[in-house]
Amino acid sequence: MGTVSAVCSDGGHGFSKPVRDRILLLEGLGVEGDAHLGVTVQHRSRVAQDPTQPNLRQVHLIHQELFEEVAAAGFTVGPGQLGENVTTRGIDLLGLPRGARLRLGPEAVVEITGLRNPCLQIEGFRRGLLKEVVGRAEDGSAVRKAGVMGVVLAGGEVRPGDAVQVELPDGPHLPLERV
């Protein structure tokens, strides 16, 4: 079991999100008041491609341990600064299979849909940071470390200090891919 370290939201399409005392997850929509709230995709580049595609990126989660990892490379990054809604501690988010469910606090449930695809905005935030959040595997493939995306299956309030419980899907576990 892990914990929620921080929660963040922003109604605008800026890069970083301010830390909040609480956020409210809305079933099938995302984070109340957040720019990415909606049944259909809200990410601007994806809206330009096809505004009717489903929103598989309603909630962005990052593990607090990533901030410690990039700090070792000289980068200071805090909750919300990479645009996430929920910062967790003690959960291997990147190791979860597609379809894993996270219980956040007493009511909310988020189903993991895939990996965040880090973009050049990270480089604009801190020069050189993109290289730290996108590594390379031995075979040369990209290793995306900037968190996971999910959809809200059950709504509820989420606050720092809330428990995070992982429920793995039945059957074969499919690895996360970028969404």
Rank of each mutant, 00 (worst) to 15 (best):
G2V: 09
T3C: 09
V4E: 02
G11T: 08
H13E: 15
G14A: 15
K17G: 02
K17T: 06
D21V: 04
L25T: 01
L25C: 10
E27N: 01
E27C: 01
E32N: 08
G33C: 11
D34N: 13
D34P: 12
D34T: 11
L37A: 08
L37C: 04
L37P: 02
T40L: 09
H43T: 10
S45V: 06
V47K: 08
Q49W: 12
Q49H: 11
P51S: 10
P51G: 09
Q53H: 14
P54L: 05
N55A: 07
L56S: 05
L56Y: 04
Q58L: 08
V59M: 03
H60L: 15
L61N: 04
L61G: 06
I62T: 14
Q64R: 12
L66V: 03
E68P: 05
E69R: 15
A71M: 13
A72V: 14
F75W: 11
F75H: 15
F75A: 04
P79Q: 10
G80I: 06
T87I: 14
L96N: 02
P97Q: 12
P97I: 09
G99E: 01
G99K: 02
A100K: 07
A100H: 06
R101C: 00
L104Y: 00
P106L: 01
E107G: 03
T113F: 10
L115W: 04
N117Q: 15
P118G: 08
C119E: 05
L120Y: 15
L120M: 14
Q121N: 12
I122R: 02
E123T: 04
R126M: 08
R126L: 05
R126A: 13
R127P: 02
L129C: 07
L129H: 05
L130E: 06
K131A: 15
V134L: 09
R136C: 06
A137P: 01
A137K: 13
R144E: 14
A146F: 02
G147C: 03
G150Q: 11
V151K: 09
V151Y: 05
V152L: 00
V152H: 00
L153D: 00
L153V: 00
A154Q: 10
G155M: 02
G155C: 05
G156C: 05
E157M: 12
V158M: 01
P160Y: 13
D162G: 13
V164N: 00
E167A: 02
L174A: 13
P175R: 10
L176V: 08
L176R: 11
E177Y: 11
E177H: 04
V179Q: 06
